[in-house]
Design a protein around this nucleic acid. Structure first.
Lengths: 127, 127
DNA sequence: TTGCATCTACGAAATCCTTCGTATATGTTT
DNA sequence: AAACATATACGAAGGATTTCGTAGATGCAA
């Protein structure tokens, strides 16, 4: 349920590219950092054991598929992160991010839009 | 530079209560979970070695002080988190949080306010 | 068919992190 | 002073993570 950093790297590749072989994933990962082929393989084997990835063993080289969605995973991660880093205050996190990171005008508009469409009646006091 | 979960727990206590002894910290932590006294002590000793906490050894029971600020720490954590969980897209994170978590009307207003005060000329495309 | 390339499987080292138990020192109380 | 309470120091177990090396299987090429 809580992917490690290495597992997240692999999930990102699978989310972006769809079902892939170890070789394909390894090639993607190699673009951003040094990593051995068997290291990637091991990760994917472990993730398969954990039930995070499924595996097609038809061909000689297996094809792995993510069994968790990007949204669900990020939701879980955000939950934990808000808890551990911000003691549960999601709004403090948002303000931290907005104050610190840069976003395009379109993204800002999108966020404002989202804010305006939030139904205030469904909102709760978090802090 | 990257506090562990246990270290964050302790930092939160010190940020909230100011310089404290192991006993004081342990009592706070005990309120939310099971944790032995020497466990807390060990954490704080390690954090002292790492330079995260300073220690006053005057009295028999030492007094520890956080050497990192809450803001700096959270900034660092957010940076890493955006990177590993959202592949660098801060705005996706924000939208995840806003869509998922509940915030008070005041907080929403505060966020909207912050958004409106962001200088668009200083913004960059992140995605 | 012999050998090269490519896969998977297995195991294990190296590091962290979390968590205490035990030992030892030092105040405090009777 | 003896006994007790409380602090720190030390070390180590147990588990998770990351990272490969090596072995063994299998397909392709010469």
């Amino acid at each position: 349920m809580k992917p490690t950093d290495a597992e997240l790297e692999i999930l990102h590749v699978l989310w972006a590219n769809g079902p892939s072989t170890v070789r394909q994933v390894h090639e993607k990962l190699s673009q951003s950092r040094d990593i051995g082929y068997t290291t990637a393989l091991k990760f994917m084997q472990i993730m398969n054991e954990k039930g995070i990835l499924s595996r097609e063993e038809d061909a000689r080289s297996h094809t792995y598929t993510a069994l968790v969605s990007e949204e669900d995973t990020q939701r879980n991660l955000v939950d934990r992160f808000v808890e551990t880093a911000f003691r549960g205050s999601a709004s403090k996190l948002v303000m931290q991010v907005l104050g610190q990171h840069k976003a395009s005008r379109e993204e800002l508009d999108e966020i404002k839009n989202l804010l305006n469409n939030l139904n205030p009646d469904s909102q709760d006091l978090t802090d």
